[in-house]
Simulated assay, not measured.
Amino acid sequence: MRFVIITGLSGAGKSQAVKYLEDFGFYCIDNLPPTLIPKFAELCHQSQGALDKVALVIDIRGGMFFDDLFTSLESLEALGYKYEILFLDASDNALIKRFKETRRNHPLSGDGSISKGISLEREKLKELKARANNIIDTTNLRPAQLKDELTNIYVEGNESNNLIISIVSFGFKHGVPLDADLVFDVRFLPNPFYIEELRNFTGNDTKVREYVMNSPVSVEFSNKLNDMISFLIPQYIKEGKNQLVIAIGCTGGMHRSVTIAHVLYNYLKEKGYRVLMNHRDSSLSVGRKG
């Protein structure tokens, strides 16, 4: 039996994750009091295979009962019941934005301060996160991408190294992404903006990518970037990092940055990493210097 405990930060996507796991055939229960977990696990094991995939959402909404979670997990281990912990996380900025968009209060923001509630929740969940089998940072994930991550873990059965790599192309004239961990400036590469027949296309178009990469400098830079990122990723995984945002910028975010983002994305996908790509400014830069 696969017994999954879903937890994490409020607003990080637990409700959405439950919907997808239900689609995958999991029997899901939201906000079960932790003290009932061992008894429920026993009932599942006595079902003779009728309940072979189970997911429970356990989080700070349980209030005072949440503190019983670790005792319940110890009981599961003593009874020989295996379980997994899926932890959903997101940046403070992303969580604050989501709460404001939904006009909901954070469960721990007694004085109305969302950021204070998030800080308290992070501290309360710190030990649980350290014990998680899989951590998904949803900061830059669209719903479909979250579903892909869950499919990878719970349908295809692939092991997760917990690091999601987000490659973001952008234009410096529109500002550097605030959540970037690594920022690379590619404004020294050949600029298709000055080629009239390429100006209004983007690095998503083959002819633009071919123009940019038809340069020894572009090829050499790309190779060096691939080598450096390949060196850094295992270090970040070892550190326990679960979200790495690589920002690649040119002037307008239309041609060169998009091209290099594609090249790096393809390289990392071939290496088997969990990688996403987002072209933040390509649609804003048509007809502008890129």
Rank of each mutant, 00 (worst) to 15 (best):
G157Y: 08
T102N: 07
G175N: 05
S215L: 12
Y194T: 03
K129A: 08
N191P: 00
S166G: 08
N161M: 10
P143M: 15
R122F: 01
R199S: 11
I153L: 15
V217F: 13
H174S: 10
K129M: 10
K97G: 01
N161A: 05
N204T: 07
R98V: 05
N161F: 01
K129Q: 09
N161Y: 06
E121I: 02
F172S: 13
I114P: 00
V212G: 05
I195K: 14
R131Q: 14
L189A: 11
F170N: 02
N214G: 02
T206C: 15
R104E: 07
E127M: 14
T102F: 07
L182I: 10
I165D: 01
E196H: 08
L182K: 03
L108H: 06
R122E: 10
A180G: 06
K124P: 01
T138N: 13
I165Q: 02
L128D: 00
S109N: 03
I136L: 02
E156K: 14
T139Y: 00
E149R: 14
I167F: 03
G117S: 09
G112Q: 05
P216S: 15
V155Y: 07
F99W: 06
T102Q: 03
R131P: 03
S119H: 09
D111I: 05
V186R: 02
L182G: 02
K207T: 08
R187F: 03
L198F: 07
E196S: 13
S169A: 09
R187W: 00
L163A: 03
N162W: 08
S160N: 12
T151P: 03
